[in-house]
């Protein structure tokens, strides 16, 4: 992966977050949550800054980032698509829905489409098992999704952001 040069502004932002938590090593997870919340993802260069600020090794930071599924080192698409792979959704056909998304977007789970529009992930139970199988795009939840509806969902976002995806 090519090295990214972080903007001064980004570095200041990261330092601010670390300062807010008193540069304490024990607050690493909180720091990561906030930094990812601001930047969208946690590339290696960001982790280096955090490690320096919290006075710990980069390896330790990397160890924590890669341990938890919530943290990502890759930028997300404009419309992150998540397919619930909880058991309830699985037995109601989530796997077929997921493979249809993979086929149509031509990306694997964890990847982002070439145009930067969509990224694909699977998650474990959003707690809407009554609507299984469930797909979320950003904040919007789609319930009882069948593989046949996949192209329709993707099309909704292809021409830009539909009004309702913001309101949900």
């Amino acid at each position: 992966m090519p090295k990214i040069k972080l903007a001064e502004k980004t570095i200041t932002q990261i330092k601010e977050v670390c300062a807010k938590f008193n540069h304490e090593e024990g607050e690493l997870i909180n720091v990561l949550h906030q930094v990812q919340g601001r930047l969208g993802y946690l590339p290696a260069e960001v982790q280096e800054v955090i490690a320096r600020e919290l006075n710990m090794s980069v390896a330790k930071v990397y160890g924590v980032v890669t341990f938890y599924s919530f943290f990502t080192m890759l930028p997300q698409g404009e419309f992150p698509i998540s397919i619930c792979m909880g058991t309830a959704c699985y037995v109601r056909g989530a796997e077929q829905v997921l493979s249809e998304f993979k086929r149509q977007l031509k990306i694997e789970v964890g990847e982002t489409s070439a145009d930067g529009k969509f990224s694909l992930s699977s998650l474990r139970c959003v707690g809407a098992c009554g609507l299984a199988p469930v797909v979320t795009v950003g904040e919007k939840v789609y319930g009882r999704v069948s593989p046949q509806q996949v192209s329709k969902i993707i099309a909704e976002y292809q021409e830009g952001c539909p009004a309702e995806s913001k309101s949900a």
Partner: peptide, 25 residues
């Protein structure tokens, strides 16, 4: 409040405690 970051193993007491301390769970 302490936030988890998505790791099933953190349901285990000792792992949970490590996670609260900011470490790998």
């Amino acid at each position: 409040i302490r936030y988890g970051a998505g790791a099933f193993v953190c349901g285990e007491e000792t792992a949970l405690i490590h996670s609260m301390e900011g470490k790998r769970g």
